[in-house]
Design a protein around this nucleic acid. Sequence first.
DNA 1: CGCCGGATTGAAGGTACTCAATCCGTGTGG
DNA 2: CCACACGGATTGAGTACCTTCAATCCGGCG
Lengths: 242, 242
Amino acid sequence: MQRPVLDARPNLACSSCNLAELCLPVDLNAAEMRKLDELSHSKRSFTRGDYLYRCGDKFQSLYAIHSGSFKTQVLHEDGHEQVTGFQMVGEIIGMDAISSDKHTCDAVAMENSEVCELPFNKLEALSREIPSLQRHLHKIMSREIVRDQGIMLLLGSMRAEQRLAAFLLNLSQRFAARGLSPTKFQLRMSRQEIGSYLGLQLETVSRAFSHFQDDGLISVKVRSIEILDLQRLQACLNSSRY
Amino acid sequence: MQRPVLDARPNLACSSCNLAELCLPVDLNAAEMRKLDELSHSKRSFTRGDYLYRCGDKFQSLYAIHSGSFKTQVLHEDGHEQVTGFQMVGEIIGMDAISSDKHTCDAVAMENSEVCELPFNKLEALSREIPSLQRHLHKIMSREIVRDQGIMLLLGSMRAEQRLAAFLLNLSQRFAARGLSPTKFQLRMSRQEIGSYLGLQLETVSRAFSHFQDDGLISVKVRSIEILDLQRLQACLNSSRY
DNA sequence: CGCCGGATTGAAGGTACTCAATCCGTGTGG
DNA sequence: CCACACGGATTGAGTACCTTCAATCCGGCG
C-alpha cells in the first residue's frame, strides 16, 4: 500500500567498478560480463562543485556513480535554478539527454566523487545482444519516470512538512539499501538545495526541521540528522492534506 | 532559449493506424515496416470514463493513442487522486509500468478514443533487430523523463497564473503539431482535473482563467478556449517569480 | 420546468513567502 | 591564540497568495 514517494534511482554498472553485485541484478554469463566490463573504460574523479555535465552539452554517455553524490539542476531563463534530483552511489544519471542528444540539466558533484562513464552507443549495441540487459536498461529508464511522477505528486499535493518527511524517509531508504544506517546520516546538501528540490524556501525547510525536532521526530544539528521515530515521520507523510 | 515547460509526449506507432508519418520519424525499409505493422494487431475503443489500465494491473504493452485523449492519475492512500498527465493523439502511454511489471497509475479516457496496443516483448525483440527503432524507443522514454522534469519545475517554482499559462501554451503547441488550431480549441478536462494536474484548487484555476480573460490574453467560455495574445501569455509564463 | 454537476465569484483564513536580525561553525589573518 | 569575517542556518514579524467554505450562476438533461 505504501509506495515510497521519492523513489531511488535504479542501478546499473560496471563490474569493473567492483559494484557488480550491487548494481547489476541481471543474470549474465562470463562472456557477457566481460563485454560489459569492456564497455566502461574510464573512471573520472570530481570534487565538490565540479560539473559532470552541463545543460546543452552533447550527449555521449550515461554515468554510473561509483562513489560520492551529485545533484542535477535546471536553469530558468532568469538565472534562478531548481534542483531536480540528488543522486548517490550506484545510481545512473544522464538519461534526460537521450531524447534530444543534449543534456537538459547540469550535474554537479556535492562531494568528492567518482563516476564510471557508460558510452550509450556501446550500451545500446550490447543490449541488442543481451536481452536481459536490454530489459534492465528499460527498467532503469522507467524507474526514473516513476520516480519523477512521485516528485510531481509531492510538489502538487503535499504541504511543507509532508514534503520534508518524504525527503528524509527517501534518504533513509536509500542509505539502508546501501548498508548504511537508515536513521543516522549526514546531509550532503544545504537548506537552500533541499528547498529548491522540494519547492520550498530555505527558511521553510529550516522551520520544518526545527518543528520535527521539537516534536521529537528527529534530532538535527545542521547537517547531521538522526531519525528518532520513523513511524511517526511516516505518519506525518501520510497525513492527508484534506 | 525558451524550452517548452510542459513537453508533449513523443510519438511512436503503428503504421497500421495510418499514423506512420506522424508517429514514426524513423527510417525503416519495407521489410522493417511490415514487421512493425505486425506488432500492433489490435485496436481497442473506449468511451469517456473507461479505463485503459489501472494502477496495479500487470504490464504487457505500451499503448499508442490513435484517436481521442486520456488522462493518467495516481491515487493517494486517502483516496484523493492526482492527475499526472493528459495524453492526446499519437502519444504513447504505459512506460511507467516497465520498471515493476505493474502499472503505477490509472489511464482513463476523456472522450471516445481508440488505442493501438504495442506488446512490449515484441517491441523489445524488434528493437534488437532494428537499431534505429531501438534508439527511437529510448528517445521516447527519455522525452517522458524530460517532460516530467518540466512539470516538476512548474510545480516547484511557478505561481498559479504562470502554471496555467504554461498549461495553455503546451496545449497550443501540441494542437499545432497535429495540424489543429493553436489558438482555438476545446478543453477535454474539467477545472478540477486541470487543478489536480497543476497542483492548484479548481477555484484558483477558474480565477486565473477569468483574470486572463479580463486582461485580454484569452477568451474563455467554460471549455472553449481562444488564445488572443500568445506573446503576452508567453511573457506571463516567463515572468520571474523572484 | 426543475434538477444536477460543473463553473464562477466572494469573503475569510491559513500556509508559506519575504525581509530582516541573529546565531553559529569554519576558516583566515592579525 | 584569539578576533574577525564569512556563509549557512535559525528565528521572528508582516504579508501575499492560495485555499477553504459558501453562495450563485449556467447549461444540459430528465
